[in-house]
């Protein structure tokens, strides 16, 4: 009997890191765009705490994440866009209040095949390709803009559950979720990368990190800022100086008030804000200036709940604008 037990014990020894005491768990879910940063922070935090606090990170899209968050199932929601009116109402109904913490910037990047001679696009060009009425009609580059070649246009983009889709459609077509439907949609950005790699007439949009990792096989297009008329390529520099517009976007974590009252969640969030700049850079996002993280910490301290965006889908927010807004909040 003793032998059996000791055998079983040694067999399951590998299954336990923390013995006896039930460890505390911090639950995160939401956007796949924010996931790499949250994952990096979670990994470092658990190493730092030597497993005394456990952190789980799920991916269910910005919208899916808010659904769980507003039911009180998660402590922190990852979001690649600000919370929308409907989600605010859901949270309010369930009595969930939250802190909104911007943690980094991303440059939504429009890419084409390297063999494509086009170097820049205007928002009007993009709209001609992606607006709902283009469905079935705009099938060649020339149809979007007469200056373009007469080659077939193959479009690739994220699916309708993604915050990236919401942001792009808002910025380009003027209305979130308004898009033609006859393009190759995938939640897996690698599918989009491969699609553009294989087809010389292809065009896709996704987060900056995917472009950076696949630079050799893709060409990022400069986007003409409708306000200044200048074509700007996406890069860390152009996002920080605010010239890559309107496709730069802030990304967020939302921390529930009830969650933040738990010491393990509070400790994780403080750690998150301290490490965000470093880790965001490591996973190819553009960190905010140090002042932004200080503002976040101050908001937490002063218990400033809610959003600075009022539930509106907004585009063209520069880091500076965000900072002024946060400072006034």
């Amino acid at each position: 009997m003793k032998v059996v037990r000791s055998l079983a014990l040694s067999g399951f020894a590998g299954m336990s890191l923390v013995h006896g005491v039930q460890a505390q768990v911090v639950k995160l879910d939401g956007s796949s765009t924010v996931y790499p940063i949250s994952e990096a922070v979670a990994e470092e935090f658990q190493k730092f705490k030597k497993g005394a606090i456990k952190v789980t990170v799920g991916i269910s899209g910005t919208g899916g994440g808010f659904k769980k968050f507003c039911r009180g199932e998660t402590d922190i929601s990852n979001a690649s866009r600000p919370i929308l009116k409907k989600e605010m109402d859901d949270c309010a109904k369930a009595g969930i209040r939250y802190y909104e913490l911007p943690i980094a910037f991303d440059a939504l990047t429009v890419v084409v095949n390297p063999r494509n001679s086009i170097k820049q696009l205007t928002i009007a060009d993009l709209k001609a390709m992606w607006e709902p009425t283009a469905q079935g009609k705009v099938v060649k580059w020339r149809q979007a803009n007469p200056a373009f070649p007469d080659t077939p246009l193959k479009l690739f983009g994220p699916g309708a559950d993604s915050g990236t889709f919401d942001y792009f459609t808002e910025a380009v077509n003027g209305k979130a979720k308004a898009s033609r439907g006859d393009y190759t949609a995938s939640e897996d950005d690698n599918v989009l990368v491969q699609g553009v790699q294989r087809d010389s007439g292809a065009l896709a949009y996704f987060g900056f990190a995917y472009y950076v990792e696949n630079k050799a096989n893709l060409k990022a297009l400069a986007i003409v800022d409708p306000k200044t008329g200048k074509a700007v390529e996406p890069s860390e520099q152009t996002v920080i100086d605010g010239t890559y517009q309107p496709l730069s976007r802030p990304i967020f974590i939302y921390v529930s008030e009830a969650g933040y009252k738990k010491p393990e969640v509070a400790e994780f969030v403080v750690y998150y804000l301290k490490q965000a700049a470093l880790l965001a850079k490591e996973v190819k996002y553009i960190p905010l200036p140090p002042k932004a993280y200080e503002l976040n910490a101050a908001h937490l301290e002063k218990r400033k709940l809610g959003t600075v965006f009022g539930g509106e889908a907004e585009v063209g927010i520069k880091i500076e604008d965000l900072m002024t807004r946060e400072a006034k909040f």
């Binding site: 037990r5 079983a8 014990l9 399951f12 020894a13 590998g14 299954m15 336990s16 890191l17 923390v18 013995h19 039930q22 460890a23 879910d29 996931y35 949250s38 994952e39 979670a42 990994e43 658990q46 497993g51 456990k54 952190v55 789980t56 990170v57 799920g58 991916i59 269910s60 769980k68």
Partner: peptide, 14 residues
């Protein structure tokens, strides 16, 4: 709703 990032194991059965 299985989770994607988990860096710990369930508590041991014994």
């Amino acid at each position: 709703g299985a989770l994607t990032f988990i860096a710990f194991l369930p508590p041991p059965p014994i």
